[in-house]
Design a protein around this nucleic acid. Sequence first.
RNA 1: UCCUCUGUAGCUUU
Length: 372
Amino acid sequence: VFLHNRLIGIYGRCGSVSDACAVFDAIRRKDCYSWHAMITAYARSGNPEAARRVFDQMPVWDVVSWNSILGAFVRAGFLAEAERIFDSMPERNLVSWNSIAAAHAQQGNWLDSKRIFDSMPGRDLVSWNTMIDCYTQNSQLANANMEFDLMPERNLVSWNAILSAYTRDGQVDIAEAIFKEMPQHDLISWTVLLVCFSQNNKLTEAKKVFETMPERDLIAWNALLSANALSGHLEKTSVLFNSMNEKDVVSWTIMVTMFAQNFSLEEALIIFNQMPMRNLVSWTSLISAYAVKGYLSEAKNLFNQLPQKDLVAWNTMLNAYYVNGLMHELKQFFDQIPGKNLISWNAALSAFAAIGHVYQAKKLFETMPERD
RNA sequence: UCCUCUGUAGCUUU
């Protein structure tokens, strides 16, 4: 059982749910570790409903079982359901509280995260680190920084989190200073620094980080690829891409996106058609490629065929109407978007503003649930 | 051997 449970965990982590499931089914005497590992495997694959089916079949539940199913819904971004689970838990520990705090931040409610953080029965290092990340995700650098200063102790995760905060805010010099000041570096620290340079148009420095870092994994390679793609050197980026001996769906999507953003629909399609695996992000990237080249109906067809849609996909399609000048359809589409976020509102608002429909723009501005 | 924190790809800011 011990070995089987480990296997479920390994398969879950590398995204092979079906393999995890096969191992799980083969265990005759399942213990709670088996059940929890299987729930988490489904959670990691983005399938909280499957996770719930496993949860429902368990003979007994403990706090880890509840945390596992809570985590499945948090990870999938289903805040309402996560809250329902949290409220109905017979017992909670710090893990439960940390999860629900992170869930609110994911949906943009960083004030709720802070409220939870302040009212939770205790705090551990993970709580503090979570709080820094809640602020970072919501572009609240000053608050992230304050929390970092206030925390009673820090580990490498805390340092990486604050490094990310400054990176996101575009404060390259401070990020560099933090990198030098931090007590240790791991692969994550190095990659964040690379991304920091990459996202602030410093390709040379980004490359230098890549060469300097003591070890490189696929994420680091993808970050370097992305740095090249962002700089607009299509040819050089393609050479790098072809030289990579390991590629995942992210690597492929970086290429599709690069061609899309440089209006090379044909090349984006060539890459897309060669992709060995695709996900929602790759499809959305292709929709964008069609849209910016004026192929709205193709974009719309792809969108309608998506097996599942997230908010980014909806917003991409919204923008497709805008760049093709179809304001009437845009308005209708906007009204259909479930759970609009600030990006949806800003996109619609700026669309009307850009074409001089001041009245419509003003009306949207006044109706917006939040503004930045 | 199970649950929560940090790194890479897609959407808005004319």
